[in-house]
Design a protein around this nucleic acid. Structure first.
Lengths: 229, 229
DNA sequence: CATGTTAGTCAACAGTCGTTTACTGATTTT
DNA sequence: AAAATCAGTAAACGACTGTTGACTAACATG
């Protein structure tokens, strides 16, 4: 009921959102999002953040918060959108750049983990909320991950040696690959940013896990073959 | 008659902890732990629980809490210990019962996931705190998982076809197996307990992932072989 | 320029929070 | 039987919480 504006703002026909006032609003909104991310850098979890804390760090008064979000949950949702938006952007770019012929696995792992490091705070937020947030946020995150797995499955389907995979098995394989990089992400977020060795090890380990997985995939017959036990 | 009813309870000789008072204290302590688990059944995360809430559900006054724990973090630590204690007990039992010759993978997956379902609240707590709790709790959980991976690696080392795995690769393989069941655990905790179909699907999927992994392992040469890309 | 819009402020509200202090009364020890 | 222990209570504290309504002043519109 707050959005029922009777007066239509006839802002410039060509430039819908560019008054100084809208600019300022956007900056403040960003400040609030950044404040939340900053508070999450430490030990805190999103659900333990208070609205007042966020406004304090963001530089406005508590009441001002409501000019931007209906409550903390809405802010959380905005953070999820931001995070996955940049992930999808990254994947679009990577796809456009074309797949390198060899070292395919290493390139993918490196691209993704580099992206994680460039957006640590976003991924830290996602990692924390994935299992612990409100069900609304958890479901939103899960949806995004499912989407992501789907994209990977499509990419995989173009490999000749995976042609015999049916759709379910392809989804499963993509899911396992995503799980590998997600697990690596979580190690990466815990590693000291300065510890280049530890970081290198995480990259190498993820690549190795991928290779082991692909080795299994190259022989896969739908799970009917027996394996030494 | 006065002499007949004389009680000598010089705790320390034969019966260190069994007065009615100690009994009561233990019951209250359990009530607090259970109260926390109960509150965690819903949307809440541990870090958002208040001490007062826990005592309210547990049936004592806030001040009484301090007779049992120095603060909420200590209670969290006790929950972690409880959870992994029962997991280790289960693995000890399973090992003692001996490994079934065939259907090894299915048996292991089933045993573990059954255990998860029998201790949903514990595992829900662990899942929520794994990435989102205080660093003390996170580190404690991580330590326990590393321990667990180690145990699995030892179990794996007894398989003939894994003899050529060096120690690092064995740890990696064990880690991937644990990751598979952990991922399945998290799906299981989100599934409706009454939805037998969904649960069945989660079991089957985890088994399938294990088989794919073992297939890769059976050909593994340390990651030097190239895979179709 | 006059008028409306609105991002952000200010002050107050009713609650909840963790923690402390002094206490009570049942159980244990001597 | 007296004395000591101690799990749990009762009340109070200062601090912090989300949300509100009335406000101000910079901006936008006509």
């Amino acid at each position: 009921m707050t959005t029922a504006g009777r007066r239509r703002r006839t802002r410039g026909a060509d430039d819908p959102n560019s008054g100084q006032r809208d600019d300022r609003k956007r900056r403040t909104r960003r400040a609030l999002l950044d404040a939340a991310l900053e508070l999450l850098e430490g030990e805190r979890s999103f659900s333990s953040l208070s609205l007042r804390e966020v406004t304090r760090v963001g530089g406005i008064t508590p009441a001002g918060f409501y000019r931007h979000f209906a409550g903390m949950e809405e802010l959380g949702h905005a953070l999820i959108e931001d995070s996955f938006e940049s992930l999808h952007q990254m994947m679009r770019d990577a796809r456009k750049a074309g797949l390198p012929p060899a070292h395919m696995i290493r390139a993918s792992v490196t691209t993704f983990l580099d992206h994680v490091q460039a957006h640590r705070s976003h991924f830290r937020f996602i990692a924390k909320e994935r299992y612990s947030g409100s069900s609304v946020l958890r479901i939103a995150i899960r949806k995004e991950i499912r989407l992501w797995v789907g994209e990977v499955a499509v990419d995989l389907s173009r490999f000749p040696f995976l042609q015999r995979f049916n759709s379910d098995d392809l989804q499963m394989l993509a899911g396992m690959m995503v799980n590998i990089v997600v697990a690596a992400t979580e190690l990466l977020l815990d590693a000291e940013q300065t510890d280049a060795d530890a970081i290198q090890r995480i990259y190498k380990n993820a690549e190795k896990q991928m290779r082991l997985l692909m080795l299994g995939a190259s022989l896969w017959d739908g799970g009917r073959s027996s394996v030494p036990e």
